[in-house]
Amino acid sequence: MSIIQLERVSRHFGVQAPIHALREVSLDVESGEWVAIVGPSGSGKTTLLNILGLLDRPTSGTYWLSDRDVSSLSEGARAGVRSREIGFVFQSFHLISHRTVTENVMMSDIYRGGDRSTRRLRAVQALERAKLSHRSDYLPVRLSGGERQRAAVARAILNSPRLLLCDEPTGNLDTATGNNILDLFEEMHDDGMTIVMITHDPEVAARSQRQVHIIDGHLTEAA
């Protein structure tokens, strides 16, 4: 069963002399796959991730997420899909600095109107899966880079999303720490999580199950 189906999706920016960030991209991602989208900067890979994450709409083409045409949904419904079905991991973590790790993880539950009574318990479980239980009461400033990214991963998986979208998840980390995060992804992949990961680093991409390359807005499957 496919989770993601892109049908000739294009994205242009600007009207006069438009920039073609994506040119008729088609992509199928099966449930449980771990896909790396590899490309140099300016190749359109961030645009692709934003469209996959419903943070941006394609100029043309259709995006089916779990067999639904999400490109035609209202903004409110798209926000609802984001809150329930997609987990985000960013290069720069985006943790709220004045909240503890647990509180940061709990944040991803509020916009789906999640059950307040079980929220903290679920956050504790997510932190266990991300192997960060020992730091649950820390403020982000006291965490190492790798620990911050683990907190972000715990936040992303709190609601058991169908799809984990990662934007250069190891970009701000040294190689060893980055590998630890990739180990974590591998475990989640083994548990059946669908992961789409953007990277410019071929070594990071090599950890994934499948690689697609994007150059000048054209997507090509790696051999």
Binding site: D67, R68, S74, V81, R82, S83, I110, Y111, G113
Partner: peptide
């Protein structure tokens, strides 16, 4: 492929509290 609209299409919501 059919276009399925399920109850999962509902908007995101946040409680007042």
């Amino acid at each position: 492929m059919s276009h399925i609209r399920s109850s999962n299409d509902r908007r995101s919501s946040i409680s007042f509290w």
